[in-house]
Amino acid sequence: MPRPIAHSASVPAPVDKVHAALVSEQYWKDRIQEIGGPSAHLVSVTAINGTISVVMTQSIPEEELPAAVTAFKKGPLVIERTESWGPLGGGRAEGKFGATVEGAPATISGTTLLEGNDTSSTMSLSGNTEVKVPIFGGKIEAMISEQVLSLIDNEHDFTGNWIGQNLK
């Protein structure tokens, strides 16, 4: 049974600057380099008219994985992530995110929302984590959800810092 995930974080920047960062190829290059982890890289970035679609891979070394995961998946956990953002209009932009785990029946998917004004912004997401493994699936979903939310916190912190350094 899928486990719902939800998260919301403030970014101390105007919504137009946050959106400008999110639809910038350079932002994604810098983000994956700084917080992507071992072997992380961008697979593709397609930016057109204030929208973007990004595919990236990240991995978690086997020694950092809990036993519940290594019981069914040997080696590093390679994750392909997707994220897309639509145009900014009326102080908001919508998007989608997803992730699949190579060689494992695990997926994450959902929607994102950027809202804000001239002084601050909020980035929110809601979605589901699903691991189709009998008996252990729920435990693995909980672990994945926790790891994803921690990663998203780091990404939101990075976004605020990146805007301060690049979009003055």
Rank of each mutant, 00 (worst) to 15 (best):
2 P>R: 15
4 P>N: 12
7 H>P: 04
8 S>D: 06
9 A>S: 10
9 A>Y: 13
10 S>L: 09
10 S>Y: 08
11 V>M: 05
11 V>I: 15
14 P>Y: 10
16 D>A: 12
17 K>A: 11
17 K>G: 05
18 V>A: 10
19 H>S: 02
23 V>S: 02
23 V>F: 07
24 S>E: 00
29 K>N: 05
29 K>F: 03
30 D>G: 02
31 R>D: 03
31 R>N: 08
35 I>R: 12
41 H>V: 05
41 H>L: 00
42 L>I: 14
42 L>F: 05
44 S>L: 00
44 S>V: 00
45 V>C: 02
51 T>M: 01
54 V>T: 02
59 S>K: 04
62 E>N: 11
63 E>D: 14
63 E>T: 12
63 E>M: 10
68 A>G: 05
68 A>Q: 14
71 A>C: 03
71 A>Q: 07
76 P>Y: 13
77 L>P: 08
78 V>T: 13
83 E>A: 08
83 E>V: 09
84 S>E: 08
85 W>P: 01
86 G>H: 05
86 G>Q: 00
91 G>C: 06
92 R>W: 05
93 A>L: 07
96 K>F: 04
96 K>M: 03
97 F>P: 05
98 G>I: 03
100 T>A: 15
106 A>R: 08
110 G>N: 03
115 E>W: 02
117 N>M: 07
118 D>N: 12
121 S>H: 10
127 G>P: 08
130 E>Q: 15
133 V>R: 11
134 P>C: 11
135 I>G: 08
136 F>W: 11
137 G>Y: 13
137 G>L: 07
139 K>G: 13
141 E>Y: 08
147 Q>Y: 00
148 V>I: 13
150 S>M: 14
150 S>V: 13
152 I>V: 14
154 N>Y: 11
155 E>S: 12
157 D>I: 07
163 I>P: 06
165 Q>Y: 00
168 K>E: 10
